[in-house]
Amino acid sequence: MSASKKNTLQAWLFLTPALLLLMAFSFWPVGFGSYLAFTQYNLIDAPVWVGLDNFRELFEDELFISALQNSALYLLVVPAIQVLAILLAVLVNNQLPGIKFYRAAYYLPVVTTVSVIGVIWNFMYTDDGALNAVLRWLHVINEPIGWLSDDRIALFSVMFVTIWRGLGWYMVLYLAGLQSVPQDVYEAAVLDGANAWQRFWKITVPLLMPTILLCSVMSMLAAVKCFEEVQIMTKGGPMQSTYTALFYAYEFGIKSLNFGRALAASLVMSVFCVALAWLNFRYLQPRKK
């Protein structure tokens, strides 16, 4: 056996468990799901091919269009989360006393169960809620702000919860990434008289680039596929201003068993996701030496 053939065989052996599992539990349902987007299907009877009907119905529904727009707007959380998570990771990447507890504190939202998040944030955001109380006490506002009841603000309030939930998750990934930044590079930079800010920009950020790529792709997909926060806080209201594309798919598909419609909606979203992922790779992929 030639060396390259042996190499190829070995590579596929390494991949086998993952590929088998992916085929059975990802490719197969995802492929079947994509097929169902072109059918009418009720679980018991065989799917009926309806061509592009589901897509036509989707694009005739102005609610879906505005849901898509909201999902696009939702991408604003990506830079916010990433910048904050990197800063947070840098801030806790040291051995100061008690820092362990701070890291755990930032990770708390990640572990908090969804139902609790819903109760709390609804409570924070009501007219008489904690947030308005604090702002009034600081004399920032006179009238309460309808965080979740004003359709001009609600989507942003929901986005804030997404950021709040995601920070700790990405902080962990960035912390892991920071470990691969060699310490001697920093020491050399200090000797060269670089200040903390310069070191951050000239050393930390470039060396973190692979992690930044990974995190921003994940965070973009998560943002476009945002659903849970809407489900627990606004259920799409007020004035349908917080409908996201996946929430739409859930409401009109999974909940009322119209799988064809739901899958058509997610397939449309997938097109956006592919475009976004491609852009990310194009501009954030570090140049190979």
Partner: peptide, 22 residues
Amino acid sequence: LKDNLFAQDNFQVQMQAYNAGK
């Protein structure tokens, strides 16, 4: 009560508001 007035389900906020005397 304005909170979630036009949401699919405003029962939870109603309960909270009533129980808080609001």
